[in-house]
Protein backbone atom coordinates (compact mmCIF):
# COMPACT_ATOMS: atom_id res chain seq x y z
CA UNK A 1 0.00 0.00 0.00
CA UNK A 2 1.79 3.11 -1.16
CA UNK A 3 -1.11 5.55 -1.00
CA UNK A 4 -4.83 4.96 -0.48
CA UNK A 5 -7.17 7.84 -1.24
CA UNK A 6 -10.60 7.44 0.30
CA UNK A 7 -13.83 9.37 0.00
CA UNK A 8 -16.59 8.87 2.58
CA UNK A 9 -19.94 10.37 1.60
CA UNK A 10 -23.50 10.34 2.87
CA UNK A 11 -26.07 12.37 4.80
CA UNK A 12 -25.11 14.58 7.70
CA UNK A 13 -25.63 12.55 10.88
CA UNK A 14 -24.60 9.16 9.46
CA UNK A 15 -21.17 9.38 11.01
CA UNK A 16 -19.39 10.01 7.73
CA UNK A 17 -16.80 12.32 9.26
CA UNK A 18 -16.34 9.94 12.20
CA UNK A 19 -15.72 6.94 9.93
CA UNK A 20 -13.11 9.00 8.05
CA UNK A 21 -11.52 10.12 11.30
CA UNK A 22 -11.41 6.51 12.48
CA UNK A 23 -9.47 5.48 9.36
CA UNK A 24 -7.14 8.48 9.64
CA UNK A 25 -6.34 7.64 13.28
CA UNK A 26 -5.85 4.02 12.29
CA UNK A 27 -3.23 5.17 9.81
CA UNK A 28 -1.59 7.42 12.39
CA UNK A 29 -1.34 4.62 14.94
CA UNK A 30 0.19 2.37 12.30
CA UNK A 31 2.87 5.02 11.61
CA UNK A 32 1.51 6.02 8.23
CA UNK A 33 1.21 9.53 6.86
CA UNK A 34 -2.42 10.63 7.00
CA UNK A 35 -4.68 13.54 6.14
CA UNK A 36 -8.40 14.12 6.75
CA UNK A 37 -10.35 16.88 5.06
CA UNK A 38 -14.08 17.37 5.64
CA UNK A 39 -16.62 19.11 3.49
CA UNK A 40 -17.71 22.14 5.47
CA UNK A 41 -20.15 23.78 3.12
CA UNK A 42 -23.88 24.45 3.51
CA UNK A 43 -24.47 20.86 2.37
CA UNK A 44 -23.52 19.76 5.89
CA UNK A 45 -26.62 21.46 7.24
CA UNK A 46 -29.14 18.80 6.32
CA UNK A 47 -27.66 17.54 3.07
CA UNK A 48 -24.69 15.46 2.04
CA UNK A 49 -21.49 15.38 4.05
CA UNK A 50 -18.23 13.96 2.87
CA UNK A 51 -14.61 13.67 3.89
CA UNK A 52 -11.36 12.94 2.12
CA UNK A 53 -8.91 10.62 3.84
CA UNK A 54 -5.44 9.79 2.56
CA UNK A 55 -3.27 7.10 4.13
CA UNK A 56 0.21 6.78 2.69
CA UNK A 57 3.72 5.51 3.23
CA UNK A 58 4.97 8.76 1.68
CA UNK A 59 4.51 12.38 2.77
CA UNK A 60 1.13 13.55 1.51
CA UNK A 61 0.99 16.37 -1.03
CA UNK A 62 -2.53 17.52 -1.69
CA UNK A 63 -5.04 16.39 0.96
CA UNK A 64 -7.81 16.70 -1.62
CA UNK A 65 -9.20 13.47 -3.07
CA UNK A 66 -10.45 14.14 -6.59
CA UNK A 67 -9.99 10.55 -7.78
CA UNK A 68 -10.61 8.13 -4.93
CA UNK A 69 -9.26 4.59 -4.79
CA UNK A 70 -12.04 3.86 -2.33
CA UNK A 71 -15.53 5.37 -2.23
CA UNK A 72 -17.90 4.76 0.65
CA UNK A 73 -21.39 5.87 -0.40
CA UNK A 74 -24.10 5.91 2.25
CA UNK A 75 -26.82 7.63 0.24
CA UNK A 76 -27.92 7.87 -3.38
CA UNK A 77 -26.87 11.49 -4.05
CA UNK A 78 -23.34 10.60 -2.93
CA UNK A 79 -23.15 7.58 -5.22
CA UNK A 80 -24.47 9.58 -8.16
CA UNK A 81 -22.09 12.44 -7.46
CA UNK A 82 -18.91 10.44 -6.95
CA UNK A 83 -19.27 7.13 -8.85
CA UNK A 84 -17.60 8.50 -11.97
CA UNK A 85 -14.63 9.89 -10.02
CA UNK A 86 -13.40 6.54 -8.68
CA UNK A 87 -10.18 5.36 -10.35
CA UNK A 88 -10.44 2.31 -12.64
CA UNK A 89 -9.77 -0.74 -10.47
CA UNK A 90 -11.00 1.16 -7.40
CA UNK A 91 -13.49 -0.09 -4.82
CA UNK A 92 -16.95 1.21 -4.02
CA UNK A 93 -18.71 0.35 -0.74
CA UNK A 94 -22.44 0.92 -0.79
CA UNK A 95 -25.04 0.90 1.97
CA UNK A 96 -27.53 -1.23 0.05
CA UNK A 97 -30.28 -0.60 2.62
CA UNK A 98 -30.40 3.03 1.53
CA UNK A 99 -29.30 2.74 -2.10
CA UNK A 100 -31.35 0.57 -4.47
CA UNK A 101 -29.34 1.51 -7.51
CA UNK A 102 -26.54 -0.71 -8.79
CA UNK A 103 -23.22 0.70 -9.88
CA UNK A 104 -23.13 0.97 -13.66
CA UNK A 105 -19.38 0.92 -14.08
CA UNK A 106 -17.71 -2.41 -14.75
CA UNK A 107 -14.11 -1.33 -14.13
CA UNK A 108 -14.49 -1.05 -10.36
CA UNK A 109 -15.10 -3.56 -7.59
CA UNK A 110 -18.39 -2.99 -5.76
CA UNK A 111 -19.46 -4.18 -2.32
CA UNK A 112 -23.14 -3.95 -1.46
CA UNK A 113 -23.52 -3.99 2.31
CA UNK A 114 -26.94 -3.76 4.03
CA UNK A 115 -25.28 -1.68 6.72
CA UNK A 116 -28.25 0.31 7.96
CA UNK A 117 -30.51 -2.77 8.14
CA UNK A 118 -27.83 -4.78 9.93
CA UNK A 119 -27.25 -1.95 12.39
CA UNK A 120 -30.97 -1.67 13.08
CA UNK A 121 -31.25 -5.44 13.58
CA UNK A 122 -28.37 -5.28 16.05
CA UNK A 123 -29.98 -2.37 17.87
CA UNK A 124 -27.03 -0.10 17.07
CA UNK A 125 -28.80 1.98 14.46
CA UNK A 126 -26.25 4.83 14.59
CA UNK A 127 -23.34 2.58 13.68
CA UNK A 128 -24.03 1.62 10.05
CA UNK A 129 -20.96 3.73 9.29
CA UNK A 130 -18.72 1.42 11.30
CA UNK A 131 -20.22 -1.74 9.76
CA UNK A 132 -19.25 -0.44 6.32
CA UNK A 133 -15.84 0.58 7.68
CA UNK A 134 -15.30 -2.95 8.99
CA UNK A 135 -15.96 -4.33 5.52
CA UNK A 136 -13.60 -1.75 4.06
CA UNK A 137 -10.80 -2.85 6.40
CA UNK A 138 -11.29 -6.43 5.22
CA UNK A 139 -11.29 -5.63 1.52
CA UNK A 140 -8.43 -3.13 1.27
CA UNK A 141 -5.01 -4.82 1.17
CA UNK A 142 -2.76 -3.54 3.92
CA UNK A 143 -5.54 -2.81 6.40
CA UNK A 144 -5.96 -5.09 9.41
CA UNK A 145 -8.18 -5.14 12.48
CA UNK A 146 -5.20 -5.31 14.92
CA UNK A 147 -5.14 -1.66 15.92
CA UNK A 148 -8.91 -1.20 16.24
CA UNK A 149 -9.08 -1.19 20.07
CA UNK A 150 -6.37 1.43 20.32
CA UNK A 151 -7.93 3.60 17.63
CA UNK A 152 -11.37 3.53 19.23
CA UNK A 153 -9.78 4.39 22.56
CA UNK A 154 -8.30 7.49 20.95
CA UNK A 155 -11.33 8.84 19.18
CA UNK A 156 -14.16 7.99 21.55
CA UNK A 157 -14.18 10.51 24.37
CA UNK A 158 -14.14 9.36 27.98
CA UNK A 159 -17.76 10.45 28.29
CA UNK A 160 -18.82 7.94 25.65
CA UNK A 161 -16.68 4.97 26.65
CA UNK A 162 -19.83 2.82 26.72
CA UNK A 163 -19.91 3.24 22.92
CA UNK A 164 -16.52 1.62 22.48
CA UNK A 165 -17.78 -1.96 22.59
CA UNK A 166 -20.67 -1.16 20.24
CA UNK A 167 -18.30 0.38 17.72
CA UNK A 168 -16.04 -2.65 17.92
CA UNK A 169 -18.98 -4.98 17.44
CA UNK A 170 -20.10 -3.00 14.40
CA UNK A 171 -16.61 -3.11 12.89
CA UNK A 172 -16.34 -6.86 13.47
CA UNK A 173 -19.77 -7.47 11.99
CA UNK A 174 -18.83 -5.58 8.86
CA UNK A 175 -15.47 -7.31 8.67
CA UNK A 176 -17.15 -10.73 8.76
CA UNK A 177 -19.78 -9.92 6.14
Amino acid sequence: MATTRMLFAGFGGQGILFAGKFMAYKGLIEDKQVSWLPSYGPEMRGGTANCNVIISDEPIGSPIVNKPDVLVAMNLPSLEKFEASVVPGGKIFIDSTLIDKKVERTDVEVFYIPATKTANDMNISTLANMIITGKLIKEIPGFEMDSVDKVLGKIISARHQDMLEFNKKALETGYNM
Partner: peptide, 10 residues
Protein backbone atom coordinates in the same frame (compact mmCIF):
# COMPACT_ATOMS: atom_id res chain seq x y z
CA UNK B 1 -7.25 29.15 3.88
CA UNK B 2 -10.33 27.04 4.51
CA UNK B 3 -8.57 23.80 3.61
CA UNK B 4 -5.67 24.41 5.97
CA UNK B 5 -8.09 25.37 8.72
CA UNK B 6 -10.43 22.41 8.32
CA UNK B 7 -8.05 19.55 7.51
CA UNK B 8 -6.62 17.24 10.14
CA UNK B 9 -3.07 15.94 10.13
CA UNK B 10 -0.90 14.38 12.81
Amino acid sequence: DGTMGQMMEP
